[in-house]
Amino acid sequence: MKRLVLLVALLSSSLHAKDLGVIAPTFPIAEIDMLDWIQQRLMTYEQTGEMDNMKTQFQEQVKKSVQRPPPVAGITTTTRPTTFTVDPTLTLASDIKDDKGRVLFKKGLKINPFDASTWPNGQQLPHFTLSKQLVFLDGDDPQQLQWAKTYQAKVAKAIPTQTIKWILINGEPETVFKVLHQRIYFDQRGDITRKLTVKHVPTVAKQVNTHWQLQEFDVSHEKDTPLSQ
């Protein structure tokens, strides 16, 4: 009986914990929905007029990136120009299959865009000749623009049927257009110059038989004066 009374006393004492008070400020647990937070921020921007400022800044950035794209790094002028060839042959990295899983073209197949005999079922096609030549320029270099005008006139006189595709690696296409009066392209991210291994400008790339021929030019003798537009 004494043991029972002792056990009841121990249990009752453990059921009555003491109030030790508040140690630190307490806050209710709440989770902020991220979409609600973003919406609240946008409403605040609209009310303060900051949203209009952000739109204007974004539009200006886009406009500037179009007018002057980021330059292609690592390409310079040269006083020791060279001429070299590049093989445009492509090699399939994997099998090409139809919708039923049948292999149409096997991995490792080599295709030369300038050689129709390497195309699938292209043995009977005529010889392919590119009607354009690519000219890579730095649009901020007055000497290169002076050279470009001379080269443009030379090609027009010697090969009237061949056109030039002007490709900038730096500068503003609109400014160069006012000088050459032809459509101007820009090698954004350097994809074309990297594939053709262009290291110096100006460089002319054109088809010779089944390869690209790249010819560099020295423009150090050209007049270093701004061209009239």
Rank of each mutant, 00 (worst) to 15 (best):
Q61K: 14
Q61M: 10
V62S: 01
K63R: 13
K64F: 06
S65N: 14
S65V: 13
Q67P: 00
R68H: 14
R68D: 12
V72H: 02
A73N: 14
A73Y: 12
G74E: 00
I75V: 05
I75R: 00
T76M: 07
T76G: 03
T76W: 02
T78F: 01
T79Q: 14
R80M: 00
P81W: 03
T82L: 07
T82M: 08
T82W: 02
T82V: 14
T83S: 15
T85V: 11
T85L: 10
T85D: 15
T85K: 15
D87Y: 10
D87V: 07
P88F: 10
P88T: 12
L90N: 08
L90W: 07
T91P: 01
L92G: 01
L92R: 06
A93P: 10
S94C: 01
S94N: 09
D95W: 06
D95E: 12
I96Y: 02
I96R: 11
I96C: 04
D98R: 06
D99Y: 02
K100R: 15
G101R: 12
L104V: 12
L104T: 11
L104M: 14
L104W: 11
F105N: 07
F105C: 04
K107H: 05
K107E: 14
K107P: 01
G108V: 05
K110Y: 10
K110Q: 15
I111H: 03
I111L: 09
N112V: 00
N112Q: 01
N112R: 03
N112P: 01
N112L: 03
P113F: 13
F114W: 01
D115G: 08
D115Q: 09
S117Q: 15
S117V: 13
T118F: 01
T118Y: 05
T118K: 03
T118N: 04
N121T: 06
G122K: 15
Q123G: 12
Q123F: 03
Q124E: 10
Q124D: 08
L125Q: 12
F128M: 04
L130R: 05
S131Y: 06
Q133V: 08
L134N: 06
L134V: 10
V135A: 00
F136P: 04
D138K: 09
D140E: 12
D140Q: 10
D140K: 09
D141K: 11
D141R: 08
D141E: 15
P142A: 14
P142V: 11
P142L: 12
Q143V: 07
L145S: 03
L145E: 07
Q146S: 15
Q146P: 00
W147F: 15
A148H: 00
A148Q: 02
K149P: 01
T150F: 05
Q152E: 15
A153E: 11
A153D: 06
